[in-house]
Simulated scan of single mutants.
Amino acid sequence: MRLVVRTVSELCITVGTVIVLFVAYVLFWTGVKADTVMDDEIDRLQRQWAEGEIRPTRTAAAPGAPAAPAEPAAYENGRAFAIMYIPRLGFTWNKPVLEGTRTDTLKKGLGHYAGTAQLGQRGNFSVAGHRRTYGDPFKDFPRLRPGDAVVLTDGTTWFTYRIDKGPYKTVPTDIEVIDPLPRMSGYTRPGRYLTLTTCEPEWGHSHRLIVWAHLDSTQPVEAGKPAALRR
């Protein structure tokens, strides 16, 4: 009996140690790796832009009006094409946006829902991100409020969106949130919109949190950072 008790005790200690190590891996190491990968994606994009790559031609627009790519090229699945900034989440917060929402893609940054509008185009440019693990990109998502700026650049233009509604809680099957004209967004006519989605609760995935925004302004990168990114 003494041997059985000792064996069971040692087994429990071993299992407990494995669980602690696994939790440490999920909470810490995946975040370290993800931060490095996201930084590498941003560095790669900025090098390409500096070398004149990935610079779509844009049609002329009236002063202050949103500029749109002329016949924009399709995004390449799993590849970064833009950088997102959300000042509400910190002036050092920036994440790469990649095409697609597969698990391996979201480990590298935020993911653009394939089939939704392209950046700055008419329709609903929709993006997903992890709430927790893999860098916790949207950990503070509930802090977002109407009026907050969400700024993106594709290397040639700055796009400033303004949040109109959210965070709105729904279920994963509610795919209408990324429709060109989302039913619960409050929008009544087609426009240039942005949808951000993440998991709810913080360590679960039974629900989703959503924010909707409209394209407020654009400006060429040569003009410097937009007002929303200036301290």
Rank of each mutant, 00 (worst) to 15 (best):
V8L: 13
V8C: 12
S9H: 14
L11W: 07
T14W: 11
I19A: 14
V20L: 13
L21C: 13
L21Q: 08
L21I: 11
F22L: 09
F22H: 10
F28I: 15
G31I: 09
K33F: 11
D35V: 07
D43M: 13
D43E: 15
D43K: 15
R47M: 12
W49C: 08
G52V: 07
I54G: 06
T57Q: 06
R58P: 07
R58D: 00
A65C: 03
E71W: 13
A73D: 11
A74D: 12
Y75I: 06
E76C: 12
E76K: 13
G78H: 11
A82D: 04
L89G: 03
F91D: 14
F91N: 12
W93K: 11
K95M: 12
P96S: 04
P96I: 03
P96E: 03
V97F: 05
V97P: 09
T101V: 11
T105C: 09
K108H: 10
G109C: 05
L110I: 05
L110M: 11
H112N: 07
G115M: 06
T116R: 05
A117F: 04
A117M: 06
Q118G: 06
Q121Y: 02
Q121M: 04
G123H: 10
N124R: 02
F125K: 00
S126T: 02
A128S: 10
A128W: 03
T133G: 02
T133E: 14
K139P: 04
K139V: 04
P142L: 02
D148H: 08
V151E: 04
L152G: 04
L152I: 03
W158S: 09
Y161D: 01
R162N: 01
D164S: 10
D164P: 02
G166R: 00
P167T: 01
K169L: 04
K169G: 04
V171A: 13
D174Y: 09
I175E: 15
P180D: 14
P180E: 10
P182D: 02
R183A: 09
M184L: 02
P190N: 08
Y193L: 03
T198R: 05
T198M: 04
C199K: 13
E200H: 12
P201K: 10
E202H: 15
W203Q: 12
H207I: 00
H207E: 13
W212G: 00
W212V: 00
L215Y: 02
L215C: 06
D216M: 01
T218N: 01
E222K: 12
E222D: 13
E222H: 14
E222V: 08
K225M: 15
P226Y: 05
A228H: 13
L229F: 15
R230K: 15
R231H: 15
